[in-house]
Simulated assay, not measured.
Amino acid sequence: MKKVPDKDILLFRSCLVSVEYPGVEASTKFVFDKLGIDYAISEKQTCCTGLGHYSDVFSQIDTTAIGARNFKIARELGRPNLVMMCATCYAINKKSVKLLNKKDDLRNHINSLFDENGLSHLKYEQNDLKPTENIYHVVDILYGKKDRIRENVKYDLSGYAIATHHGCHYCKVHYEDTIGGVRDPNVMDELIEECGCKTIGWYDHKRATCGTGFRQRYSNPDLSFTATADKMNAIADEDVDILVHLCPNCHIQFDRYQDLISKRQNRKFRAIHLNIAQFIALAMGADLDKVIGARAHTVPIDSVIGELKEVSK
């Protein structure tokens, strides 16, 4: 595995994380602090346009131009390593860097738009950033520090049946950059093992989509929720207690709609849903309300997780 950075990081804020599950951001900061990872957040950073882009509201030119602006902010801060809490931000920004570096006509067009609007200072020069050296997901950074996780673990979560869902926009967009494989993704499984736990590993529909499809949730709900039901039935068949994921959109699909899909399937689904940063933060002793953000979850975390026991040192 190529070495990933632990400093000069701009932690890229996510619209869905901020609005739906702010505990993901708080948990990421908590874990980064525990692991000694140097990061900052900028109020100047804007949305990656992911929801609008994949719903055909934002063109690729618009999305790439907004990306170029955010990349300039990162460089000006001396933090060229952009780290995403959202798999869609990851896929969008990595693609934008690749396009800006390879497509001279697109880069020149976007720079001319900046010039025309008095924003020449935002101009992107070829190879200002590199997709494999400057654009990461949080799991990449955590994986680079995985040997430090176990020493910071406070609570024993090994008694729960745990499964992972890695998400399309991390595993199925930039195949060559995905840590832990794409046919049987396991980067989160390995991180969970560092917390002293074992996941169930492979299960039916492990690689399947969560069903969101952005607009599909609203324009084709039957198709969307049928796909989600496939995953929920698969983890229920394995008696899973906790499903761990890395994308807030997947989180929404599973957590917000679990009760609806239970009624559609006439089957009680009982798993709770945690982002990988939340899971590790919980293992490290983070407060359920102040850091994990338990009250923002639709499926109550305490419906599965009871009194936590400290690990034996």
Rank of each mutant, 00 (worst) to 15 (best):
A277I: 01
D62M: 09
I272Y: 10
V182L: 02
S219N: 12
T298G: 03
Q45I: 04
C247E: 08
E20F: 04
V291A: 02
S262Q: 07
Q45K: 00
L51G: 01
Q60M: 05
A26N: 14
I37S: 03
R69N: 03
A283E: 07
G213W: 05
Y155N: 13
D104T: 12
N233V: 12
I61M: 11
I235T: 14
I261M: 06
D237N: 08
S112H: 06
E125D: 15
F214I: 05
F114N: 10
D237F: 00
I149Y: 07
G213Y: 09
K94V: 05
C247A: 10
H245P: 02
N111D: 13
Q258K: 12
R107S: 05
V291L: 03
S158H: 09
Y170L: 15
G293V: 10
L246I: 14
V304Y: 07
Y175T: 14
Y90L: 08
H273D: 06
T212E: 06
N70I: 13
G181C: 02
K231C: 04
T212R: 09
L113F: 01
C171W: 01
T178H: 01
D241W: 07
G78R: 03
S219G: 10
L122M: 13
K2F: 04
N81F: 06
N249C: 00
L35G: 08
R217H: 11
I276K: 11
L100E: 09
K145S: 11
L77N: 11
D104Q: 09
N134V: 08
I92N: 09
K44I: 02
I280N: 11
Q253A: 03
Q253H: 07
E25A: 13
D115K: 14
D56T: 01
L288D: 02
I149E: 08
A271P: 11
T228R: 08
D239H: 12
K313F: 11
S96G: 00
H121G: 07
K130A: 14
N266D: 15
Y54S: 04
A236L: 09
W202Q: 07
V182G: 10
P80A: 04
C195T: 13
I200M: 02
D184A: 03
N152K: 15
K98E: 15
L246E: 10
G306L: 12
G23V: 05
D184E: 14
A68V: 02
N152V: 00
H251K: 10
G78Q: 00
Q60W: 01
H169S: 10
V311M: 09
R79E: 11
T178Y: 00
A26K: 14
R79H: 15
